[in-house]
């Protein structure tokens, strides 16, 4: 797969305070994003995710390091023709209607003017805003703003889309809609760079992730390589069995009513538990094997740092 974004040894620091004191934000970031993947850029608040994005988009200039988009400098106009960007908590010109807004952004790109109208209609339909085409942005809800922001990021039919916390502040339905759009972008062959701290979303849709902590990439690679598929614990919810019968088969937690949640750490003990339930004519309500999650990996990486 071709590399569409390459970041090498990126450093950035800012001077803050009345007596300027240098604060390192990025400390040697290196990563690669391959064509056609959804790349999750994960990190706690203040880790440097947005700063990395700003460097890539040319909004701030790195102290050191190299950034290439499609093999060209990130500051070149040819590279910018191929990218789209949705910032975190977007604010747009609220006196424009959705159509006027997209038309304005379309004029800033090399998009063919004769296709402008069709492109705007398609995008509004894609993000579910065709009913608000002539509504001023000041009357938009937070979720609608996020959707129109996504539409402006796609106005030039980019091959690489940068999304900074696109699911932040959305209700579950809104999050699902945006997630669906992101997956559709991948199906259309676009590459998505998704910066977020919402682990659940990243885990659901990303092919590869990089975990950023205090300006360092502490872990990166395909999700299935990073997260161990070995079962760490099996959670069994049972009823009709006395606590004393379970012995040392696992850790017991009381659940609703006479239900007991049993955490079994050794795989070989699961059969013994099930055997016991059969003998005592008890009941199994659920049996869930828990593998390592992205959250475990993330929390581990942050703690280690």
């Amino acid at each position: 797969m071709d590399t569409v974004l390459q970041i090498e040894d990126l450093h950035k620091s800012f001077k803050t305070g009345f007596i300027p004191k240098e604060k390192k934000i990025l400390d040697g970031i290196s990563l690669e994003v391959k064509a056609g993947e959804i790349f999750g850029y994960l990190g706690p608040n203040g880790a440097g995710k947005t700063t990395t994005l700003k460097c890539v988009l040319g909004l701030i200039f790195p102290d050191k390091g190299n950034i290439e988009i499609f093999g060209q400098s990130n500051l070149s106009m040819q590279a910018k023709e191929k990218i789209g960007f949705l910032p975190e908590n977007p604010y747009f010109y609220d006196y424009l209607s959705a159509t006027e807004f997209l038309s304005f952004y379309c004029d800033l790109t090399a998009a063919k003017k004769e296709r402008k109208k069709t492109q705007i209609t398609t995008l509004l339909r894609m993000v579910g805003l065709e009913h608000a085409a002539n509504l001023q942005l000041r009357k938009f809800s937070r979720g609608m703003l996020q959707r129109i922001g996504l539409a402006q990021a796609l106005i030039n039919e980019p091959s690489l889309v940068f999304l900074d916390e696109p699911l932040g502040g959305l209700d579950p339905l809104g999050r699902k809609d945006i997630r669906d759009v992101i997956v559709r972008l991948k199906e259309e062959g676009k590459t998505v760079f998704l910066s977020s701290h919402i682990l659940q979303d990243i885990e659901m849709i990303c092919d590869r992730v990089a975990i950023l902590v205090e300006g360092h990439v502490v872990n990166q690679g395909p999700l299935q390589d990073l997260v161990s598929e070995k079962v760490q614990v099996t959670e069994i919810t049972i009823s009709g069995i006395g606590s004393e019968d379970l012995g040392d088969l696992g850790e017991r937690y009381s659940a609703q009513g006479d239900r007991v949640l049993l955490k079994v750490f050794e795989e070989e003990k699961i059969a013994s538990v099930l055997q016991l339930i059969l003998e005592k004519k008890g009941r199994v309500h659920s049996l869930i094997p828990r593998t390592e999650t992205l959250e475990d990996l993330f929390v581990g990486a942050v703690r280690q740092k």
């Binding site: 106009m77 910018k80 604010y91 800033l108 790109t109």
Partner: peptide, 14 residues
Amino acid sequence: DKRTLYTLLSKPIQ
């Protein structure tokens, strides 16, 4: 201040 500049400068404009 309102960060409208972020999306503008991410487009191919100098």
